[in-house]
């Protein structure tokens, strides 16, 4: 009578033998899987290279296409700028890294060069206009969406660039590391509605502020932050002007 595994030294050897063959089989299986994955990755890369070479120009030139592309990347959880290598190979193949960094530099350029005039706060529309002007016709069209994305990539630099929502769909970009308090945001929103002009009365009637609150907010913006200008020849007495909410044509 034999028990299945048997007993003694021979049985021990047999067991070792079968363990070995299991290990071999398992190795073989994982190897196949790895190979399979490699194949898939290679396919994916090829597809990507094909995509990049076919659509690179469209991505760089056509803001609508670029927006769709960015959205597609976001839904599948891929950051077109990130990757194992510097800039990532998406970025490398699409030349999108350079494109984004270039845009970032242009945004900084506009923000810094207009800071004297606007105290470090610029209206999004004007920023887009000025960046587009800087890029010239050959640079292709740049949208608000691109600017917002690019500002996000500036974040690690710690320069304090931030996109602010000032209400009624209007956005502003702040390029000085100054916190805007809530009252200042309200003043900016009212200034936006009024082409740049704000008065104590406007804040009192539109936002039901007390005169003291209106005066304090405006004085702070004027003296502490230099974010608005004083006009003592206003028909109603005194008014304040937020240069970043005024429409400049140059």
């Amino acid at each position: 009578m034999h028990r299945l595994g048997g007993v003694g030294l021979a049985a021990f050897e047999r067991q070792q033998q079968s363990q070995k063959s299991f290990a071999e089989l398992s190795n073989e299986l994982s190897q196949t899987q790895v190979n399979h994955l490699h194949d898939q990755l290679a396919q994916f890369r090829n597809a990507l290279i094909r995509f990049a070479s076919t659509h690179r120009d469209s991505i760089r030139r056509d803001p609508k296409f670029r927006h769709e592309f960015q959205r597609m990347c976001a839904t599948i959880g891929v950051d077109p700028l990130a990757g194992p290598r510097k800039g990532g190979w998406w970025a490398e193949m699409l030349n999108l890294g350079d494109w984004n960094y270039e845009l970032g530099v242009q945004i900084v350029d506009v923000c810094v060069s207009t800071r004297e005039r606007n105290g470090g706060l610029i209206e999004m529309g004007e920023l887009v206009r000025m960046v587009s002007k800087l890029r010239g016709v050959a640079g292709g069209v740049v949208t608000e969406d691109d600017v917002i994305r690019s500002i996000k990539t500036l974040k690690p630099l710690g320069a304090g660039y931030e996109v602010l929502d000032v209400g009624s769909g209007k956005k502003m970009v702040r390029s000085v590391p100054k916190e805007l308090d809530e009252d200042q945001s309200v003043v900016l929103a009212v200034a936006q509605e009024e082409g740049g002009r704000v008065t104590e009365d406007l804040l009192i009637s539109r936002r039901r502020w007390t005169p003291e609150r209106a005066r304090a907010a405006l004085e702070n913006m004027l003296l502490r932050d230099g974010l608005c200008w004083l006009d003592e020849q206003d028909e109603e007495g005194v008014s304040y002007w937020v240069p970043s909410a005024m429409r400049w044509e140059e």
Binding site: R117, R197, L222, L223, G226, W229, L230, D231, E232, Q233, D234, S239, W241, P243, M246, W248, E249, E250
Partner: peptide, 16 residues
């Protein structure tokens, strides 16, 4: 264009 800005004619209290 700054010549068209109303506040340009007021002496500003903010030194900068």
């Amino acid at each position: 264009s700054i010549h068209a800005a109303q506040a340009f004619y007021t002496k500003q209290r903010n030194q900068q």
